[in-house]
Amino acid sequence: MIKILKYSFYDLMRSRWSYVYFLFYLLLGFVLLFLNNELSKAVITLMNVIIVLVPLIGTIFGVMYFYNSKEFTELLLAQPIKRSSIFFGQYLGVAGSLTMSLVLGLGIPFALYGLFESNAIWDFSLLLITGAFLTMIFTALAFNIALSNENKIKGFGYAVLVWLFLAVIYDGLFLMSLIVFEKYPLDNFSLIATMFNPIDLSRTLILLKLDISALLGYTGAIFKQFFGTNLGLMISIVMLTLWTIIPVWRLGYKSKRKDF
């Protein structure tokens, strides 16, 4: 598995897209910090980008890579290697290189602007951690979709749909239900609804750490009571891990049974 991971990883490291992705974040980081020299303000703007873009790129990249390396995968399948190690290796290779581009691309400009002396370091690390989680989650989802669909167009379609659902439509449904049931106490409902969407969960987690959380008022206070404690943070991390593990597990499960 390690060998395949290494191969995928280096293959991607050599590919142009990893560089483009890395340079994009590098540029974004520098431009943001150039425009407002304040680290904590830049973290808020960055959050907006990460919440939307990281899942999208994870999804597209994952699907693309899976379909592109299909012939190579089939070649590997003919060798006496465990199926799960082939797919896990490839998955970790993609997710790893994307995460590295993200962390380095954003980390370098922020470090140069004095991140380590500023007190935004925790907010920033949380941002990177959730970014890494989102990459892992959406790459795993993309691999699942690609594995289940032989048809490339269909696969792409479903992958984009999943992203669209979690990034946009879910919030719309969430909003509708909040408005329809406004006569009922909605605190626990909104907490749970947030938990079930990794994008919402990441957004809330970061927002509550920033001082903008004062805007959230009464609802925010309840959220803060939950997420502010170590237990809340643990539960959110566990939820994000579950969101990673379940698709990865399904990937292993499906790949074993699939007839190539």
Binding site: M47, N48, I51, V52, A167, V168, I169, D171, G172, F174, L175, L178, I179, E182, L186, D187, S190, T194, D200, R203, T204, L207, I212, L215, L216, G217, Y218, T219, G220, F223
Partner: peptide, 21 residues
């Protein structure tokens, strides 16, 4: 306007859906 009607919806602050609507 929505937040004024249903204060709980503030939890969707800065979500992409809100920007779109």
């Amino acid at each position: 306007y929505i937040v004024n009607r249903t204060p709980e919806t503030i939890i969707l602050l800065r979500s992409l859906f809100m920007d779109i609507i």
